[in-house]
Write a protein that binds this DNA or RNA. Structure first.
Lengths: 152, 152
DNA sequence: TTAACATAGTTGTATATGCAACTATTGTTT
DNA sequence: AAACAATAGTTGCATATACAACTATGTTAA
């Protein structure tokens, strides 16, 4: 068996390319937001007030990286942190008006880009690839009970 | 259209997971090599003496990042750089005996891991996913003539 | 009840990354 | 040939990342 027959290198390389390209597109459009920050905004849009460690879990980030990412975004008024009364350790993260505004500007740009990326690929092909990658993801998470984050 | 129907976020997230997991596996096995370094060794194994900027192009790395990656690997005796007489700007990169040794130790570990990751996924599914991702990659490279590297 | 442990988050430190600016060499134009 | 541009690679700097150690709070158990 060789590497070229395996999905893993393909995903690694293409993932890198996608990340770099999306960041570049945002920068070229003068949007002061990284791809990683956009993902946070998207999660908050769907689930406002989510605790930091849930964000770390979902994004598969180290909690310290996420802490600093959130700090930067808070400095830029994209979101705010609020400690809960029930558990003073937890800081819930809320989208600000400005954060929502930036999200609404950025979302169509990202969607347009990824549609361009997927041009000429059928819905069926996309769904099948998603299913396969999903299996892969489950295998990795199960086989190695990875401590990328502190989630119990 | 929503994000969940798109391949792009799946690839991004899974790519991140794969990278982190492989690096962790290597570390746990006490192999002093990152995934990125392994990729370089693999390329040199196949194409010994390749110039640095070709390595940067193939790995989609910034030339400065690659320069430092190669410097570190040279310090660890995994490879050596040699300027060519024909063009003194170019530095060709050669695998050392030690580098080859480390590669031979590491390769089966990586292969075993990625086979575990792909458990329960048929060859057909893998090939289809590779084809789809390949199309995606081409689209990205063509649509945006990205200057991730300096290749003409 | 208090000692031990677990959890959420931050900060210190080391390392990795990428852009800009630089050196050195080669290619092109006039 | 001299001036200019292009190319390969390195270094400076700013930022991102992750592990370890830390603080603060909450939970469990003797």
């Amino acid at each position: 068996m060789s590497f070229e027959d395996n999905l893993i290198p393909w995903i690694g390389k293409t993932g890198k390319l996608i990340g770099a390209t999306l960041n570049k597109i945002l920068k070229d459009k003068n949007i002061n937001l990284t791809r990683e920050q956009f993902v946070i905004l998207k999660l908050l849009k769907k689930n406002n007030g989510i605790p930091q460690h849930d964000l770390a879990f979902i994004t598969e980030s180290d909690k310290t990286s996420l802490s600093r990412l959130i700090s930067n975004m808070e400095k830029n008024n994209l979101l705010i942190r609020k400690s809960t009364k029930e558990d003073k350790r937890i800081k819930n993260v809320y989208l600000t008006e400005f954060g929502l505004e930036i999200f609404k500007i950025t979302e169509p740009i990202i969607l347009e880009s990824i549609q361009k990326f997927q041009k000429g690929i059928t819905d069926n092909e996309i769904n099948q690839a998603i299913q396969t990658i999903s299996k892969l993801q489950n295998n990795i998470i199960k086989e190695h009970s990875i401590k990328l984050c502190d989630k119990k």
